[in-house]
Every structure is written in C-alpha cells, then in structure tokens.
Nucleic acid binder design. Sequence first.
DNA 1: GTAATAGTGTCTCTAAGACACTATTAC
DNA 2: GTAATAGTGTCTTAGAGACACTATTAC
Lengths: 241, 241
Amino acid sequence: MYKSEQEYLKNYNVHRYDIPLLSIDIGIFTILNGKLHVLLIERGEFPYKERWALPGGFIDQSQDQDLHSSALRKLTEKTGVTTPHLEQVETVGNAARDPRGWSVTSLYMALIPYAPTSKFIDSVSDVRWWPYEQAIKLDLAFDHLELIAKARARLKSKTAYTIIPIHVLSSPFTLTQLQQAFEELLEKSIEKKSFRRRILSADVLEEVGQGLPAGGLGRIAALYQPKQGCEQHSFVWSLGN
Amino acid sequence: MYKSEQEYLKNYNVHRYDIPLLSIDIGIFTILNGKLHVLLIERGEFPYKERWALPGGFIDQSQDQDLHSSALRKLTEKTGVTTPHLEQVETVGNAARDPRGWSVTSLYMALIPYAPTSKFIDSVSDVRWWPYEQAIKLDLAFDHLELIAKARARLKSKTAYTIIPIHVLSSPFTLTQLQQAFEELLEKSIEKKSFRRRILSADVLEEVGQGLPAGGLGRIAALYQPKQGCEQHSFVWSLGN
DNA sequence: GTAATAGTGTCTCTAAGACACTATTAC
DNA sequence: GTAATAGTGTCTTAGAGACACTATTAC
C-alpha cells in the first residue's frame, strides 16, 4: 500500500482506529496519627459526579514527556509535593470499568510525609486525607476500590523486603517512628531488636543528632535520615513469614 | 453543562480528545538447549517494516474482555500455547517511542516450555525463537530493546524468590533440569544441595515416577510435576545475595 | 572396572525471633 | 523514687553455602 515509512506516516490518522480511553490514577498514601491514610478527591464532573475517587486524569500530550511525569504532575497539583516516592503498580483495562467505553488506567502509588502537605491540601476544597479503613467503605467512583486495594497490596509487599516506609516520614525521625510506620504498612508487629538490627546493618540511614521522642517523655533518641541511594536497598530476607 | 450522567454519556465522543496510541507487547521466553530464548516476529508493516520486534499489537475492543485476555490472545496466535505463565511487567508511555505520536504500550512477560511450540512456530514464516544474547544485538523495532530488557529483568528478579522457572519446562522434569533453568534465568550457579532443600521443603512439586536423565547416561532420576497452587509460593529468602 | 549423573550428610554462617535486661529522660 | 521510652545481650531457630560423600545407571 505505502512505499516508504515517510509516506505511511504522512497518511496516518490515529482517529481512524477504535482507541481505548487511557487515564492515570494515583493512590497517594501517608501515615497520620500512626494510621495509614489515602488521598481522595471528590469528583466535580460526570461520570460519577460527587463521588470520591483517586486523583488522576488524562495525559496531556503537550505537557507530559512520559507516563511517569504525567503521574508526577497530577500528584504535585494535588499535594504540592515534588519529590515523592512514585511507582507504577499495574495497568488495568477492560470493557466494564468506565461507562464511556473500553478504558485503561495506569495505576501509580505514591508515598509522602504528611507534614508538608497539610496546609496545601486544606486549601483545596475537593481533596482530603481519608483513613484507609474508612476510604474503602466509601462508595468510590469507577473501580477505584479495586485500584486502591492493589496499591495497598503493593505497599504491604514492598514493606517486607525494602525500606519503602521511610517515605511516609519527614526527616529526621527515630527508629521507633520508623518501626511504627513499618508495622502499620505491614499490618504486623515487628520485634524491636530484630528491626533495629535489620535496618542498622543495612546501612541505609545516617544519624543526624538526638531528640526527645514524640510525646516528650522518655529517654532521648537518636535521629536519622535516609542515606543517598537507600531506595535501592533490597533485603535478602522478607519480614513477616 | 449536563444535568445527568445519562445525558453526559449520550453526548460523549471519545474522538474529541487527543488520545495516545495504546498497544500490548509480549516478551515470550523459553529455554532451549539450556539457553534462554525469546520469541520475535519480523514486522510486515510500517512503521519499522522488516525489523524484528516483540509480538504485540492493538486491543480489539470487540474480542478482548480485558488487557490480560488481549495479551493471551496474541500469545496464543503466535505460539499455539493456551495456558502459559503470563504477567504484566510495566506500562511504558512517552512522546518518543513511536513515530506516529505519543504512544503507550503495556508490556507482558510470558514463559512457556519449548516443546509444544516448536512445530507450530516453524509453520509461521515471520516468527522465530532467538537466543536472548543474539536478540539484544538485532536492531529491534521501536524501543523493543528496552522492553525486552525490562521483561528479562523481571524474570531474573522473580527467579530469586519464586518458582517461576518451572514454567519453561514441560512436565515431568528432574530436579537437575529445574536447577539448570533456575541457573540460566538467575545468571548464577546454585549449590545443588541448597537448591534441592529449598525446592523440596517448599512442597510445590509432586513426584510422578522415575526416568533416565536427559542424555541417557547416569543414575535414574526422580521426575516431578508442579503441584496445584505452586504459583503462589514465595520464599522468605532470596537466592543469589 | 570407569564415566556420568542423582542424591545425601553435615558443618558453618547469616539473619530473624524471643525476651530479659540496662540506660536515660521528665516528673 | 515511678513511668515512659531508647537501646542492648544473648540464646534459639530457619535456611543458605560449601563440599565431601554415597548411590545407581550404561558401558
């Protein structure tokens, strides 16, 4: 039909094909008062107007270089946070998940510390942090209940062999705070000595002084911040059986 | 603008938006003569006509229920295999990967035993198994070199804590054959006793008789097949540091 | 017998699990 | 002193790593 790639491309028109809708959704998690929270927005538009949903939307081909930057842009718009932990979880596509037709969404998971977002988010009317256990009881838009559960599952499984929970804390933090974050994300308690041995011998933290524990009572604790490159660390043993 | 969801959906037209192209690509792997092989097709159409590429293509909204079945359909069309190990690796999207414009592909990885495919594939002219090391030296279409490497990396990392290499063997097999598959996928040799202890105590195989080892020389070996549900098994320790 | 492959015995080493213990702070 | 929290000592246990050993087959 066409003689060359140039000729083919000149005559190519994407709208000739039946293309599924492609969106991005992000499960943004933090820990607040020791409990896992997830950021949801109240939809202002159809479909599922006025229902709670994961932040997300469509790719802007002129603004977004790639899928990851598109997810990062949406995250920053909602939280003001620019350097979070952000990873792709799974891409879900089927005929049933959107009333507008066959649709595909690329699900991302982000972890951010609560502190820097609180003022930013309070100033945006349709966005709020929900405790995870409450969030999954809301009647969420689309298949977002399923998506939120997939992101939660990824978070739990990576907690077992990485130091991912580090990203929900703001530096510096104590080992006890870090352990509590691990326990909340793992849904399991961890023996203190084992936890300290594991984290300290992984050499992923650096001590940056001392401070009173949260609550102001008890012995002064060592404060830590993540070392450069700690993100790459992967343990040989998984936690929690 | 619209009063109800019904009204909104009636007036909705997907072609009003700038939608990126969405495709599916599959890295299909097996082991042949002890070496990892990957299935490639020679493209018959623009763009990248006559270049080697991963099998893949567009979603058929009328045939495919969801992304996974779309990937399974393409895999079956090329190999004749209907029950492989098939998993999503990552979805890659950016402005540069396809000359037709912003495009997104959902990358899958499949593992199949060589045996049942050999005749089927020999009868299809544009498809062949390439040794992995040779495949990555071909001048592949699109960003398929990158995709193939991502699928390979997933394969390697899952070999360290699952029994995924089981899927490149046809049952029954000996423990030695299984160990060789693990070693090839891990790119590392494993100590025999450790390997046997690990696999046997995981209780994922059942013995189904005895047979001569491949080569016909040496002591008769126990033959095994995977137990139902073995797919779910996850080791607490990872292999290979 | 030899060559080849299957399979075992057993010691060492690493890191988790349990749990009692000591240390430091505010009051 | 007590309450509260930080941090340690040390024994046990699971499973990897090393490596020499025995067992079974064809010839």
